[in-house]
Design a protein around this nucleic acid. Structure first.
Lengths: 317, 317
DNA sequence: TTTGCTCATGGGCAATTACTCGCCTATGGG
DNA sequence: CCCATAGGCGAGTAATTGCCCATGAGCAAA
């Protein structure tokens, strides 16, 4: 309880209050008196600790139903790894649960002693997952982004997750100084020829593990919402059979990349090898059902973190 | 929502309820209706999940380590209160951190509305703590010194902290007009018989809370440095197993007061009851390791403010 | 079959926690 | 130097949670 006028002192207090509340199991009243503050202030500190994500909760129990689903999905689609978290029927969030699970999985990889290359894609789900990461130091690992960090308007794209990740994880990180979509195949060639981009692309090809979000198409899908594609381009894509995308790479209902002008303009790195590395897709929710099914069917990914409802959908004949 | 009547199903349900509660952040009411059970049952499942340690809470903040250490030390030595501040590896100061923490703790006591008696010992650490105190007015409280304020040469002892404290804190304060060590047990009896000293001693015995420094022995220890003991007296003490002192009261490795001529010459008040009051020791640093361990082992103190390194030492088997 | 035991259940109530409001105090720009 | 703003604080209040108790089902032993 060192008194400090700095802002960080408040976070320290929040951490202390959160610890006393969640770990030591004291009531907020007790915390208040032990810290010499009012009950309300103690409550504020506790909720601050939660809001600042100082408090991490995880569940250490394989829920039988989830395990069975995971196993079934893994076998049906011949995947390396499948994780299924409980569905929350009352929530419309597309990230709750799987974000935590994905964060735990990322953490597991980052804690390995041997140096790895970890690649990340983009998307809201992945962003939510990365926001759950605790501070880790792993100078041996390299973290590389598969997708560009420049939005269509030239600004830094919010949903490029590598920067959020760099905040929490002390490791060398390699962003991709490119837009997600460029105007033509030729421009892509030019950009990919740049030394800086080339080396990042080379690193991404060596990825040991890759985490990617799975995006659905449609005018409400991320590609449109974030302004990468116009409405009519999207409609055109869907007419051609596209059902989902990963890092901008658009694929059809079988999970095969579309032979389409759009894919020629994707500036992202290729999705790393599903033969020699682990590519973990993260996603859940009705709107993504088809995209996820296509991604696992076509082996665009070889591992999956999703929820019960989605797993059940995947198992339907 | 697969329901199972088997026993293992209950733990599964607990896990699910715990997940919905802690990870998804739903209320127990919502969980109840989504699982088709009563709120009470949902509550039971959640608390079962906690009781079965299915739910793991983690605090992602440097201070977490301190709190865990503090808890462990508190349990191991059966103390009322332990506070651990981060160690500063780059600093050789014996007070940085714990002085601020101790000041905050003192302030917390002084802010209480009901009148208390606060006793203080002596020492550089305590002095540093008191120097951190802000100005407070608390006419209801009484502050009493356990140790004399007269140095061996007859001057006012610098490290008698009650005067520094009086500068910052407006309260009635009671110094002890005595040396720390007198020449004989008889002289102590005489001095303690004086009316002024007697009343101070009586107040000190009523202390609600006491703050004391913990001194190490050795020719570099405070008793020698401040001239209370000669080198050969110190050597003699250490041969007899003494490892530390509080207010001049010398104790051995078990924290038991030594049956030694020196202790018969200590003019300080007795350390107030560890049964009925809080006696907070303040100290850190390698040189004090043994003294602090002895003090907590022998319950010369029942509360401790220290740093991480020292706490780790205390926890070693 | 009865008895005694365990354990889950739901109701009700007290304790605890979360949220909202208005006030106050720093902070920073004009 | 003054005003505007942000953010913390305390009080009050609503919501949520924890706990006790009476009940009844399931089950084993008498």
């Amino acid at each position: 309880m060192v008194r400090k006028s700095e802002t960080s002192g408040r976070l320290d207090d929040a951490a202390r209050a959160g610890w006393l509340y969640y770990v030591a199991g004291r009531t907020q009243d007790e915390i208040a008196s032990s810290m010499g503050i009012s009950r309300q202030s103690a409550q504020r500190l506790v909720s601050l600790a939660v809001a600042e994500r100082l408090i991490k909760v995880r569940l250490d129990h394989p829920i039988a139903a989830c395990l069975e689903l995971a196993n079934a999905v893994r076998k049906k689609f011949n995947l390396k790894h499948v994780e299924v978290v409980p569905s929350d029927p009352g929530s419309s969030s597309t990230t709750v649960g799987i974000a935590e699970a994905a964060a735990a999985e990322i953490e597991r990889w980052l804690k390995r002693a041997d140096p790895i290359v970890l690649a990340v894609g983009t998307g809201r789900t992945l962003k939510a997952a990365v926001d759950q990461l605790p501070a880790i130091e792993c100078p041996n690992h390299r973290i590389v982004s598969l997708t560009g960090n420049i939005a269509p308007d030239g600004s830094a794209a919010y949903y490029n997750v590598i920067f959020s990740m760099a905040d929490a994880v002390k490791a060398r990180h390699f962003p991709m100084p490119l837009p997600v979509l460029v105007t033509s195949a030729e421009e892509r060639e030019t950009l990919h020829g740049q030394q800086l981009v080339r080396s990042t692309l080379e690193i991404s090809a060596q990825a040991d593990v890759t985490f990617v979000g799975i995006g659905e198409l449609g005018i409400d899908g991320p590609l449109c919402v974030d302004g990468f594609l116009e409405k009519d381009e999207m409609m055109e894509l869907m007419r051609n059979g596209a059902v989902g995308e990963i890092c901008g790479w658009v694929f059809d209902g079988e999970g095969k990349l579309l032979d389409n002008p759009i894919n020629e303009r994707v500036a992202s790195a290729s999705i790393p090898s599903r033969e020699s590395s682990t590519v973990i897709g993260i996603g859940k929710g009705k709107r993504k059902f088809k995209a996820i099914k296509a991604a696992v069917t076509g082996h665009q990914i070889n591992a999956l973190i999703t929820d019960e409802d989605t797993a059940e959908y995947l198992l339907r004949p």
